[in-house]
Computed example of a mutant assay.
Amino acid sequence: MFSMPQSFGGHRPRTNAYADIGASTATDDASPHKLIGLLYSTVLSDIHTARGAIRRGDMPAKARAISRAVRIVDEGLAGVLDMPRGGEIAERLAALYDYLVRRLTIANLHNDEAALAECAGLVDTMKDGWEGIAAQVHAGAQAAPATDAG
């Protein structure tokens, strides 16, 4: 259903060096399943950051957080869907990701906390579901025979 992108992200300012180290440590040995879970967590964090920024009147911070969330949904989640193999599930996820991008964009344009709350609820539900299938994914990975000795 998912395929991993060749690269994701762009140049980050040096002020995020410690955050980059933490993110790198969390993703170095992560399975594709865990990486998707981390993307869901990051989108949720960005949405919460945007909501706080709206409350503080910090529009640049709101715009940065929502822009990052949109990019993760669009490139990191929707962009790795394997449509030919994912079938109906991939199609439904693609439609949901498209909806999220549109709602996040509206929230950004109109400082709409209700739209952000709706998006957070949807992402939280997807994250919970994704975490709920972790045992099945892990069991399937262990059951699959190794095809590459390195």
Rank of each mutant, 00 (worst) to 15 (best):
105 T>S: 15
100 L>G: 03
105 T>M: 09
87 G>V: 07
114 A>L: 10
117 A>T: 14
114 A>K: 12
97 Y>P: 01
110 H>Y: 10
95 A>C: 01
87 G>E: 06
93 L>A: 13
98 D>L: 12
93 L>Q: 06
89 I>N: 08
110 H>N: 12
112 D>K: 05
91 E>D: 12
84 P>F: 08
93 L>R: 05
95 A>K: 14
88 E>T: 15
95 A>E: 14
104 L>I: 03
112 D>N: 15
117 A>G: 09
98 D>C: 03
113 E>Q: 14
117 A>E: 15
87 G>R: 08
88 E>H: 10
90 A>G: 11
92 R>E: 12
91 E>W: 00
94 A>G: 04
107 A>C: 08
101 V>T: 12
104 L>A: 03
104 L>R: 01
104 L>D: 02
86 G>V: 04
85 R>L: 06
110 H>M: 05
106 I>K: 10
104 L>G: 02
87 G>F: 05
100 L>T: 05
90 A>N: 09
89 I>F: 11
107 A>N: 07
95 A>M: 11
118 E>Q: 13
106 I>G: 06
88 E>F: 04
101 V>I: 12
109 L>I: 11
92 R>C: 02
118 E>P: 00
101 V>P: 01
95 A>H: 09
111 N>W: 00
117 A>Q: 14
113 E>L: 11
84 P>N: 10
89 I>W: 06
83 M>S: 08
118 E>W: 05
109 L>S: 13
102 R>E: 13
115 A>D: 10
108 N>C: 03
94 A>S: 14
87 G>A: 07
103 R>V: 11
99 Y>S: 13
108 N>I: 02
97 Y>M: 01
93 L>P: 06
105 T>P: 03
94 A>C: 00
